[in-house]
């Protein structure tokens, strides 16, 4: 029984990590209808920025803050310079963000080299909890906590603030928001920056768990795309549920069907899409 509980907890923690990784992507997709294929690369960049500042003897949390800020700024620059040219043009978006991910990944490789790195767990959280017979790292519980906090924040922003109202309206009817005299361009820049910052944040927090290495950006991207699609496009709530679902099923799948471990996430996605072609919480598409 205790091993079952341990694995459930493991799956939950893993799912929350998935949620953090996918949150930025799903928000950009939901509000702006842009598939940001550079999302995984921004994640990687976030982790590396923390790595640099920690090496300079800075506190983990300050480094994390710097990383979030820098990725947000990069988000603003990218949106203003490039992304804004491709709104509504899906194939161009694919090409552009794909190209960007190539460039950023190569810059990362240039600056930080090819060696694998890992972020140290912040000293405050570098301990393991003993629950009965099992041992559970405190840092993972912290990730669960941050994941919940992020969900709460998103819920609050969406339903209780003016920005949330504008964005919800924007998702439903772009032209109307513009007609109301709201600067849609500014909103979009803000949303993209927010999404990029979330990628940076999850990179910083995921760094101690996943580590950093060349080629990681693609894996992160595919994972987050899958989480987003299972949840349904444009619904962060869907992503939240689907991330937990994927985390838990994957963890148990590894134990019960070890030979399928390469496939589990893809199978979940396939099954969900066959039953519900628009994802769990996606709106019916015409």
């Amino acid at each position: 029984m205790s091993i079952f509980l341990a694995q459930l907890l493991t799956g939950l923690a893993y799912g929350m990590l998935y949620f953090m990784i996918a949150a930025g992507l799903t928000i950009i997709l939901g509000v702006m209808n842009v598939v940001n294929l550079a999302h995984g690369t921004l994640f990687m960049l976030g982790a590396y920025i923390v790595f640099t500042f920690i090496s300079d003897e800075l506190n983990f949390w300050i480094a994390l803050l710097i990383s979030v800020l820098l990725t947000a700024v990069l988000g603003i620059i990218l949106e203003k310079l490039l992304i804004k040219h491709v709104y509504g043009k899906e194939l161009e978006q694919v090409l552009l963000t794909f190209g960007l991910s190539f460039i950023i990944a190569d810059v990362v490789k240039w600056i930080w080299g090819t060696e694998m790195q890992t972020l140290p767990v912040p000293a405050l959280l570098d301990a393991s909890l003993s629950i009965g017979e099992m041992v559970f790292p405190l840092y993972r519980l912290f990730v669960v906590f941050i994941g919940c906090l992020l969900a709460l924040l998103l819920w609050y922003l969406e339903s209780k603030t003016r920005i949330g109202a504008i964005i919800r309206a924007g998702v439903d009817d772009r032209a109307m928001v513009g007609a109301l005299g709201i600067n849609v361009g500014l909103v979009f820049t803000g949303v993209f920056a927010f999404g990029a910052a979330l990628a940076g944040l999850s990179g910083a927090l995921g760094g101690p768990l996943i580590g950093m290495y060349t080629g990681m950006d693609n894996e992160i991207l595919v994972t987050s795309l899958i989480v987003v699609v299972i949840g349904g496009l444009g619904s962060w709530k869907g992503s939240f549920i689907s991330a937990i679902l994927v985390g838990v099923i994957e963890t148990f799948g590894k134990v019960w069907f070890p030979s399928l471990s390469m496939l589990i996430v893809f199978l979940i996605m396939m099954v969900v899409l066959i039953i519900r072609p628009q994802g769990l919480f996606g709106r019916e598409v015409a």
């Binding site: 091993i3 341990a6 694995q7 493991t10 893993y14 990590l17 099992m134 768990l209 996943i210 894996e219 963890t251 148990f252 590894k254 134990v255 070890p258 471990s261 390469m262």
Partner: peptide, 16 residues
């Protein structure tokens, strides 16, 4: 035990 290549989370295997 054979986890897949690029396994982010070894916890289930370590527990086993």
């Amino acid at each position: 035990l054979y986890p897949k290549l690029n396994t982010n989370d070894f916890a289930p295997y370590l527990q086993q």
